[in-house]
């Protein structure tokens, strides 16, 4: 039964497993301030390159840069539901970090009224499940008007 399954991250260390205020976990260079997501092991700014990196929480909200969807099941290693359910993918621009981050759009959200520039927020949602676990991932959804 789905209720008894453990909720575990689909990948370790990429986001905070916090039901009420989840966020992406990246790193920030202590020298130049550049933010990286996913984590980097060194600063890639060619004008810096020496900074120590510290973990940082990325903004939970951003503006929609673009979106599209997938009407056909992708190949493995994606784990597709049977039967396949199309999903939307959004590219969201984070203001403070000045970067665009991709994510699926939370299941059940209708993208037909999406507009570039609208505010989006990060949530956790199921990516796939097996017999024992439900694997969760970050997703984007519109901020309720």
């Amino acid at each position: 039964m789905a209720e008894s399954k453990a909720r575990v991250p689909a990948i370790e260390g990429w986001f905070r497993m916090d039901g009420s205020a989840p966020c992406l976990l990246g790193v920030r260079c202590r020298a130049c301030g550049t933010v990286y997501f996913p984590r980097e092991s060194f600063c890639r700014n060619p004008g810096c390159g020496h900074g120590e990196l510290e973990e940082t929480q990325l903004s939970r909200r951003g503006r929609l840069w673009s979106w599209t969807d997938n009407r056909y099941a992708p190949p493995p290693p994606f784990v597709a539901k049977q039967p396949f359910e199309p999903y939307t993918i959004a590219a969201v621009e984070l203001g403070a970090e000045k970067m665009v981050v991709l994510g699926q759009v939370a299941s059940g959200v209708d993208a037909s009224a999406f507009r570039v520039g609208q505010e989006m927020e990060l949530v956790l949602d199921a990516l796939f499940e097996d017999d024992t676990n439900e694997y969760v991932i970050w997703k984007w959804r519109p901020v309720a008007a």
Binding site: I11, W65, T68, N70, P75, P77, I89, Q104
Partner: peptide, 26 residues
């Protein structure tokens, strides 16, 4: 990252093409 984008996002090549196309429309 080429393995992870399929695993974690289901982001095929046409997903990226679709993002650029929608951006052009908007």
């Amino acid at each position: 990252p080429d393995w992870l984008r399929f695993r974690l996002l289901g982001a095929t090549n046409p997903i990226y093409f679709g993002l650029y196309a929608r951006r052009r429309m908007e």
